[in-house]
Amino acid sequence: MDKYIEMIRIRFLMMLAYRTNYYTGILIYSINIGAYYFLWSAIYGEKDAIEGMSVIQMSTYVAVAWMARAFYFNNIDREMAAEIKEGKVAVELIRPYNYLGMKTMQGLGEGIFRLFFFSVPGMFIVSFIFPLQFSADWTTWIFFAISIVLSFFINTQINLLTGITTFFLFNNTGLIRAKRVVIDLFSGLLIPISFFPVWAQDVLKFLPFQGISYVPSMIFTKSFSDNEAIQAIIMQGIWVLLLIIPIQVLWVIAKKQLIIQGG
């Protein structure tokens, strides 16, 4: 276990080494939050509520969805693709650790870094600019905390899956990009799932994406009742377990037919 924790620390150090990247990140996120805030204000106009959400809940939703994204989002699929293409996996495979486990920990290190140096201060600043609503209810915070950790796992597992496809497709840049768009759209980052047409909502119910952004954001804005929140969290947990299966299967196949590039 020690080694995995050490990896989180190392990733933290690497993020510190590239601080400037993350300053630009803050800027991009703030612009996004601002843009969506004004967009939604315009859509709401005089209306008090749409689909059961007030305008304040909506701006909170937007803000928290983006700040949560900073935590669960990572580029380990792109990193894996690069490592596979350059033949660097060779080095990873001669280490006594689980490559996918280590990748997950790197993602977590990155996530924790952004949570403390980006999301928390970012949320603080944003709450001065836009009217947001924070729950005083500690159960909401606990639900949110559990939910966001599960978001991280679901998103990371999807990234691992995309990353592993490099072994088979070799050039999967397009797939990685498509995955990113699909997740941003179907996870509820841009539009809450409850705003989708009913048929689309029905389809999305059977996909893991809403566990990434929609669930934690709905919990945070108290748009879910406690009961709904618990159910949603259980659903997230089930997805985390289910996704392990395709990852392991693909990984075993990938290792068998692995070809290392370069001498």
Partner: peptide, 21 residues
Amino acid sequence: QRSQLWWDIAVQESFRLLKKV
């Protein structure tokens, strides 16, 4: 022809990680 140390961090940090690994 390929490095097994982590590119962006100090050598001793790599050593420390490998020690744990």
